[in-house]
């Protein structure tokens, strides 16, 4: 057994076991920690595939940034409420159906994979002895900023759009209403944007005086009907 095979088996088993723990743990924080372990093990496998730059990227982006995001959101959401949901458990028959479907699907996939992979892809791969730089930041960067430059720019636009979308989605409705009012958006526009404050039902058990009908300062056109 060669050295790389030992390393592969050790980290492949670690990746699979961590992934299994990720999807079976009840507490999302614990699941996130197992997911980090899985990402690290996968990064080691990338190194074995002589993709050292992608391995570094995997650790930086997945195990670093994305996990911080996950854990931060779990913290914001108050972990005691993000645990197991107790209501509406599937019935026994339906549960049996779930597990049966998964077992049949996994079995079919392994049957197909073991048949095709064992016959076709036993070649050890391309000979890399004449390109020792394969997978380094230099080599990947030359391809990325040459052949794939347009795709790279497109992905930066996608990330920008995602950042803006995340900020817009995560803001609360009250923030959006207040900001719409502050910016002097008129009532019709607010209503078209789904921000009409009069349609918002008051939260039950609201402490303090019930907000009266507040139409704000009269606009230049004056009130149209109403109180």
């Amino acid at each position: 057994m060669s050295g790389s095979l030992v390393v592969f088996y050790a980290f492949a088993i670690m990746a699979v076991v961590s992934a299994l723990f990720t999807v079976t743990r009840r507490n999302p924080v614990v699941a996130a920690v197992w997911l980090v372990a899985s990402f690290f093990a996968v990064a080691v496998c990338y190194v074995l595939l002589s993709a050292s730059f992608i391995a570094v990227l995997q650790v930086l982006v997945y195990a670093g940034a994305m996990m911080v995001l996950f854990v931060f959101v779990i913290m914001v959401l108050d972990v005691s409420e993000t645990g197991e949901a107790t209501h509406r458990r599937p019935t026994r028959v339906r549960q049996l159906g779930y597990y049966g479907a998964v077992v049949v699907g996994v079995g079919l996939l392994f049957w197909v994979l073991s048949g095709t992979l064992a016959r076709q892809f036993l070649t050890p791969g391309a000979d890399l002895r004449n390109q020792p730089e394969f997978g380094s930041a230099d080599a990947v960067g030359r391809v990325l900023f040459g052949q794939y430059l347009f795709a790279f720019e497109a992905i930066s636009m996608l990330l920008l759009a995602a950042v803006i979308g995340a900020v817009v989605v995560a803001r609360s409705r009250r923030d959006r209403e207040r900001e719409a009012k502050d910016e002097g958006m008129d009532e019709a526009t607010r209503e078209a944007a789904g921000l009409d404050p009069q349609e918002t039902p008051a939260a039950p058990g609201l402490i303090g005086p019930t907000p009266a009908h507040d139409y704000g300062a009269p606009s230049a056109g004056g009130h149209e009907g109403g109180v």
Partner: peptide, 24 residues
């Protein structure tokens, strides 16, 4: 490897938007 890099970027964007929706 370039495709894998793009997948990582898309996954980051997806996680950001998905978690924002979860918070909302």
């Amino acid at each position: 490897q370039i495709m894998a890099m793009f997948t990582i970027a898309v996954a980051a964007a997806e996680a950001a938007v998905g978690l924002a929706i979860v918070v909302s």
